[in-house]
Amino acid sequence: MFTRRWEPMAEVWSEMGHLQEEMNRLLGRLGNGTRALFAPAYPALNVWEDEQNVYVEAELPGLDMDSVEIYVHNGNQLSLKGERKEPADLKGTWHRRERNYGRFARVFELPYAVEADKVAAKFHNGVLLIQLPKREEAKPRRIEVRVS
């Protein structure tokens, strides 16, 4: 099941959320109505690597390249920002509203330093895939073992 949640909040909530999570862990407290602060980070990410690249994937239905901003800071801080806009022209009675709209932002620490200017991203059917080439020093090196 998807437990993630869209938060129509500014990016500040993400940081606040982390703090709150820490506090909750310390205090062993459960939710008390401050729902937004308990939401898991959005978007959820899958991250994997090969020798040359780190890959980050996120499900962002309804979004495309024009509605998402991707940055890399300090070599390994990946920042994802965007907004899913609510369709304005829908009139009637909502029987069900499970999909969320609004702004989101997430900063993610990559396990390796990457080449920020060579990052490539593409959207396909609402799935964002980001390819981040590792910096030379982060690539695996084969160590020659000499047998003497």
């Binding site: 998807f2 499900e59 962002l60 829908l90 009637g92 009675t93 909502w94 029987h95 999909r99 609402g126």
Partner: peptide, 25 residues
């Protein structure tokens, strides 16, 4: 198998259903 998130709107002349199906061709 996942349960997609959906919205259902009843308008005067139709029901409108929106579903998030990321990754579906």
């Amino acid at each position: 198998t996942y349960n997609p998130r959906i919205d259902i709107l009843e308008a005067e002349d139709e029901l409108l259903l929106l579903a998030d199906l990321p990754g579906v061709e």
